[in-house]
Amino acid sequence: MGRMKPTRLDTKAADATCPAHAQADHPKIPKEKIGVLLANLGTPDGTDYWSMRRYLNEFLSDKRVIDYPRWQWQPILQGIVLSVRPSKSGAAYRSIWNEEADESPLMTITKDQVAAIKSRISAVYGDEVVVDFCMRYGNPSTKSKVAALTAQGCTKILFFPLYPQYAGATTATANDQFFRALMEENWQPASRTVPPYFEDPTYIDALAQSVENAYEGADKKPDILICSYHGLPERYLKVGGDPYHCQCRKTTRLLKERLGWNDTQIMTTFQSKFGPEEWLQPYTVEEVARQAEAGRKSIAVCAPAFSADCIETLEEINEEIRESFEHAGGEDFLYIPCLNDEPAHIDALVGVIERNLQGWV
């Protein structure tokens, strides 16, 4: 029978003391705290072949992402996919890589988000609440960050996947990894997971502000706003009952209502199709071309499913999808950045955190 690894408490922490009424030789333990662990998708450590291969292997081996039987999918993945795709993905990442920090934009932005949230949370709760982040794939791993929080004395952890809309391939797999990490802890903290916030009024308002600001600064007002969400196979919705499609459409509707627009000014599309199956439609890359061919020469695109700009927005939307629009005769393409560390977004995220901490603080 296997034994769990003991939880390693930081007994040298400045606030470490012996429990009340404990024997004199009892090890010191840190002051009890609450951890808030933000989670995003992940990022390769570098753009070289082997860094990309490690990252893609972890990502594409996830049954939540690709649910084909292992015997069927793994030979394909380990063969042709991981032979060819790391080089192509590495080139795409190099086109957006933060060379100064030697990291992906997602990592840079996530660090900025966490720093802003830490500042806000610390101002209210002091050192009672510890804020950190992890990635579902790559580094820093969920396992390492859960271990670090428990070592600091966090007896409660609020786990916050940074996906406004729920999907099995995003929110659920992040939660899965969090629960796996808890299995490694001998002294498990109490835990909560944050539900999707796709209809949260402060999130919708932050989206609306970003659109309004972009339109005000545009040389030409766009004819339509394309809300491009990351896609999923249709089968996940029809067979598995995944609510993602409905939540995406509701986000677009609430954004439309907040902006005071009509249906001709905004629409929902889906990007990042992978493999032979039918995915959620319409596909963004095809829809922007149709808009151009229909005479709409000026469009804007935003990505409400992404909390931070990443390869799917900076490279796919702002390069590939832009190219599809312009090739079809489009003229003015406005990409509206993700909410990133904008103050209104930080307000929304802090509000979600504080509501989910109720009863703990």
Rank of each mutant, 00 (worst) to 15 (best):
N40G: 03
F133A: 05
A289C: 09
A16C: 01
L162K: 08
R258M: 12
N340M: 07
P140K: 06
P27L: 11
W97D: 08
W261A: 03
A167K: 12
L38R: 01
G79C: 03
K88W: 14
A14C: 13
K156L: 07
I109E: 01
I117H: 05
N175D: 07
L280M: 02
S104Q: 03
R53K: 13
S272A: 08
L158V: 12
Q165I: 15
D15Q: 08
C302L: 10
I76K: 09
L349D: 10
S61F: 14
P337G: 13
V65I: 00
E216D: 14
G2D: 13
Y229K: 04
S272M: 11
R85T: 08
T142V: 10
M135V: 05
A14E: 02
D45I: 09
D62L: 11
A308C: 10
F198L: 06
A344P: 14
P196R: 04
Q78G: 02
Y49M: 07
V124G: 14
G240R: 12
G295N: 12
L314S: 11
D10G: 08
N57C: 04
E293H: 06
G351W: 13
L339M: 02
P243N: 03
W187T: 05
I157N: 12
F59T: 10
E184L: 15
D263C: 00
E320Q: 14
W73P: 06
L254R: 02
L106S: 02
I29P: 08
M4S: 15
A92S: 05
P69A: 00
N318W: 13
A303K: 10
P75C: 01
Y125N: 00
A147W: 08
L82D: 06
L41K: 07
M4K: 15
Q152L: 03
D45C: 08
M52Q: 05
T11E: 01
W97L: 08
I157W: 00
E58Q: 05
P140A: 04
G153S: 13
K220W: 06
E293A: 11
F59E: 00
T110S: 00
C134D: 14
L207H: 02
E184S: 07
L182V: 02
E100L: 08
P140T: 00
Q188A: 03
L77S: 01
D242Y: 06
W73T: 11
M183D: 14
A305L: 10
T155D: 06
C134G: 01
A151S: 15
I321G: 00
N340C: 09
E212A: 14
V65S: 08
Y166C: 01
A214M: 09
Y236S: 01
V81I: 09
Q177F: 15
